[in-house]
Design a protein around this nucleic acid. Structure first.
Length: 595
RNA sequence: GGCCCGGUGGUGUAGUUGGCCUAACACACAGCCCUGUCAAGGCUGAGAUCGGGGGUUCGAAUCCCCUCCGGGUCGCCA
C-alpha cells in the first residue's frame, strides 16, 4: 500500500467522492467524545479529517490517544463539508476527509514548544530543536521563499547566457579583510587551507579563462562577530562578466531584482528605475553610504549659512575644517525637555560633542515663525530664519544641528535620521526602496595604522580619469565600485576590476604591499593577467539579507537559514564547535595550548 | 573586549519600590464529560526551591557581587 495518494494541502472540492490516503502530522485535535476532528498537516498544507465512530474499522479509543505531532496515515473519502461548517481560512476548507481507517506511522513525544502556531519561543530552544522549529509555518514559508528566489535567479541568469560554476571551499588564506576560517592539512603538516570569504579571485580567473558570464550561489565564510544580519557562513549570488562597464553590471542587477520583485513579491512597491546615487551625494544627503530612501528628511549643510554667525561653536568648528549640518524633524517642536535630552544623549553616544535644537513655532507676526533654542542668546531672528529656511523647517518642526568633523556629523545625523524614521513612523513597510551607490573612493585613510585601505577590495579598478592621481593623491581617486542598497541595508557590492598587471601592482603598492608580499599572496592573479586577461567586473548580492527583507516574519537572517548559528557562533542542535579526539589532532599535527 | 535587554512549571507570560508568593494566568500534559468543531467546549488534577553560585536580611523571584546562556548593538565585518 502507498503511504499516500494525495497531499493534505491539496485536497479540493474536485476530489469529493474519491477514496484517498493521507500521511501527515497531527496539527490539532478537537475531540467531541463521540466525534473527533483531526487537522492533518503535511508539506503542502492542512486538511480536516473527521473520525466518526460509526465507521466499522475505526477504534475511537485508539484515535483518542493521538497527540500533537504524531505522524498519522488516514484512508478515507473526500467529502464536501456540511452547510455552515466550511472554513474559508483553509485552502482545503470546503472539504473534509471522512476517515475509514487510521494508522499511526510514528508517535511523537510532547513537543518542547508549540509546533502548531507561530508563538514566540526562546531562540536557543528553537535552535536546539531546529527540526521542529522548521515544521512551523514561518520558517517553512521563509525557506520556500528562499528556494523560489534562488531558482528564479538561476533561471534568469541561465536565460542571459550565464554559466554556473562551483569553486573550491578549500582555498589559500589571504589574510586581509575579515578573519579567515582555517582548515589544517593532514598531508602537509603545519599548513592550512582557508575557507573563502568570497570566490573573488577565483571568479576573476574564470574570466581570464574566457567563460565571459559566470555566476554561483556561493557559500562564504568570515570569522567575525555575529549580528542580526551577519552569520559566519552566508550565501552570495556571486557573478562576474567580461567586456562590461559599470552600467552593464548595474543594469543587469536592476533587471534581475525588478524581475524577482515582479514575479515573486508583487505585493511590494519598488523603486523602478532604481536611483543611482554617487557616494559623495549619499554622504551629503543621508550621512551614510547605505541610505534608506523610503523617506526624505535629508541632511542640510548649514556651513555656508552660519559661517559669519557670532557663535563660537560654529566658528571654531568651521575654522578647524569641520562642518555644520542639520535635519528638520517634522512635528517635533513640542518635544519635552526630556525627549530633547534623549535625542542629545543619542547624538553624544554616537560621537557628537552635542546637539543643538531649534523648536520652530507658529508666530502671528509677519515672519510666520518664532524659535525656542539656546541659540536665541547668540543669534538674531533673521539668522534663525536663515537656518530654518536652509533646513526647510516649518512651524511645528524641530531642527537638530550637529557641528564637528564631517565624518562624525554625517554618522550622527544619519543615525538620528533613522531614529526619527522609527519614532515618527515615516516609512511604509510595503516598500522596498532600492538604489545604487556609485563612485566610491578607491581608498580610505586608516588613521590608526596610518595607511591607505581599499574601500571595496584591492582588485577594484580606479576610473580612467583618476588613474593619474594614484601616485600623487590616492585619496581623491574615484573607483568603479558600486553597492546595491535597499531600505538602509547593503544588499550587494561589486566593481569593475583591474585586469592589467601593472595597474594591479601599483594599487597593491599603495596599499602597502611589498613586491614579495604581492607575489606570495596574489601571484596567481597577477600572472593570469599576463595572459590576455579581459576587462571584467561583477557584483555579489547577499542572498540571506534579501530574503529577510522579502519575508514578512523574519527579524534576522537566522530566520531564512535552515540551520543558523547563535550570536556566539555555536550550534545548539549539534553542539558545535566541539573538541576533537587526540587521534584527530595527532593526524593533523596539532596540539591545544591552554589559555 | 565595551554597553544594553532578557532568563520564573514542558512553552509563553505576570509578579521584580523585599513580607499578603504556600508564586498567578494561558497553552501544553493527565483524568472525566461531550456527535459538527476548526485557537472546540466543560469539570478535575499534576507540574516551578524563580538560569547557576555566593552574600545582605528576621525574611529574597525581588537588593548586592560573581558566573553561565540567549538576543540587540559598538568595536570588528578587504
Amino acid at each position: 500500500m502507498e503511504f499516500r495518494t494525495l497531499y493534505c494541502g491539496d485536497v479540493r472540492v474536485e476530489h469529493v467522492g474519491q477514496e484517498i490516503t493521507l500521511a501527515g502530522w497531527l496539527h490539532r485535535r478537537r475531540d467531541h467524545g463521540g466525534l473527533v476532528f483531526i487537522d492533518l498537516r503535511d508539506s503542502r498544507g492542512i486538511v480536516q479529517v473527521v473520525i466518526n465512530p460509526t465507521e466499522p474499522d475505526l477504534d475511537l479509543d485508539t484515535v483518542q490517544e493521538f497527540r500533537n505531532e504524531w505522524l498519522i496515515q488516514v484512508t478515507g473519502t473526500v467529502s464536501e463539508r456540511p452547510e455552515g461548517t466550511v472554513n474559508m481560512n483553509l485552502p482545503t476548507g470546503q472539504t473534509e476527509v471522512l476517515a475509514s481507517s487510521v494508522n499511526v506511522i510514528n508517535p511523537s513525544n510532547t513537543p518542547p514548544f508549540n509546533v502548531n502556531d507561530s508563538s514566540n519561543v526562546d531562540e536557543s530552544l528553537r535552535m536546539k530543536y531546529r527540526y521542529l522549529d522548521l515544521r512551523r509555518p514561518n520558517l517553512q514559508e521563509n525557506l520556500w521563499l528562499r528556494h523560489r528566489v534562488v531558482k528564479h535567479i538561476r533561471d534568469f541568469l541561465d536565460d542571459k547566457g550565464f554559466i554556473e560554476i562551483e569553486t573550491p571551499i578549500l582555498i589559500k588564506s589571504t589574510p586581509e579583510g575579515a578573519r579567515d576560517y582555517l582548515v589544517p592539512s593532514r598531508v602537509h603538516r603545519g599548513q592550512f587551507y582557508a575557507l573563502p570569504q568570497s570566490p573573488q579571485q577565483l571568479k576573476q580567473l574564470l574570466m581570464v579563462s574566457g567563460f565571459d558570464k559566470y555566476f554561483q550561489i556561493a557559500r562564504c565564510f568570515r570569522d567575525e562577530d555575529l549580528r542580526a544580519d551577519r552569520q559566519p557562513e552566508f550565501t552570495q549570488l556571486d557573478l562576474e562578466m567580461s567586456f562590461v562597464t559599470e552600467r552593464d553590471v548595474l543594469n543587469l542587477t536592476e533587471d534581475l531584482y525588478l524581475d524577482i520583485m515582479a514575479k515573486l513579491a508583487p505585493e511590494f512597491s519598488v523603486t523602478n528605475p532604481m536611483p543611482r546615487i554617487k557616494y559623495q551625494d549619499a554622504m551629503d544627503r543621508y550621512g551614510t553610504d547605505k541610505p534608506d530612501i523610503r523617506f526624505a528628511l535629508e541632511l542640510k549643510n548649514l556651513s555656508a549659512e552660519v559661517q559669519d554667525f557670532d557663535f563660537t561653536v560654529f566658528k571654531d568648528t568651521l575654522a578647524a575644517g569641520g562642518c555644520v549640518k542639520a535635519i528638520s524633524a517634522p512635528g517635533c517642536s513640542s518635544y519635552s525637555r526630556k525627549q530633547m535630552a534623549g535625542l542629545t544623549e543619542f547624538a553624544v553616544s554616537r560621537g557628537a560633542s552635542g546637539l543643538i535644537t531649534i523648536a520652530v513655532d507658529e508666530d502671528g507676526e509677519q515672519s510666520g515663525n518664532s524659535y525656542r533654542s539656546v541659540l536665541s542668546k547668540y543669534l538674531s531672528d533673521a539668522e534663525m530664519h536663515l537656518i530654518a529656511k536652509a533646513t526647510d523647517a516649518s512651524p511645528g518642526d524641530l531642527i537638530l544641528i550637529v557641528a564637528g568633523k564631517p565624518k562624525i556629523v554625517n554618522a550622527v545625523l544619519g543615525d538620528l535620521r533613522l531614529e526619527l524614521r522609527d519614532r515618527l513612523n515615516l516609512v511604509d513597510q510595503d516598500t522596498l526602496a532600492f538604489c545604487f551607490i556609485t563612485d566610491f573612493p578607491l581608498f580610505d585613510w586608516n588613521e590608526e595604522k596610518q595607511r591607505w585601505d581599499s574601500s571595496h577590495h584591492p582588485f577594484t579598478s580606479p576610473t580612467e580619469e583618476d588613474e593619474q592621481y594614484l601616485d600623487t593623491d590616492p585619496g581623491r581617486v574615484i573607483s568603479k565600485a558600486y553597492d546595491l542598497v535597499c531600505n538602509g541595508s547593503e544588499l550587494a557590492s561589486g566593481s569593475i576590476r583591474i585586469h592589467r598587471r601593472a595597474l594591479q601592482e601599483k594599487v597593491l603598492a599603495i596599499l602597502g604591499y611589498t613586491s614579495s608580499e604581492m607575489l606570495e599572496r596574489f601571484n596567481q592573479l597577477l600572472e593570469a593577467f599576463d595572459y590576455g586577461a579581459p576587462p571584467h567586473g561583477g557584483i555579489a548580492p547577499g542572498i540571506d539579507r534579501f530574503i529577510a527583507l522579502l519575508s514578512r516574519n523574519a527579524t534576522s537572517i537566522r530566520d531564512v537559514i535552515a540551520f543558523p548559528k547563535t550570536q556566539a557562533a555555536t550550534d545548539p542542535l549539534f553542539g558545535s564547535p566541539d573538541e576533537v579526539s587526540t587521534e584527530q589532532l595527532r593526524d593533523l599535527g596539532l596540539r591545544i595550548v591552554p589559555e
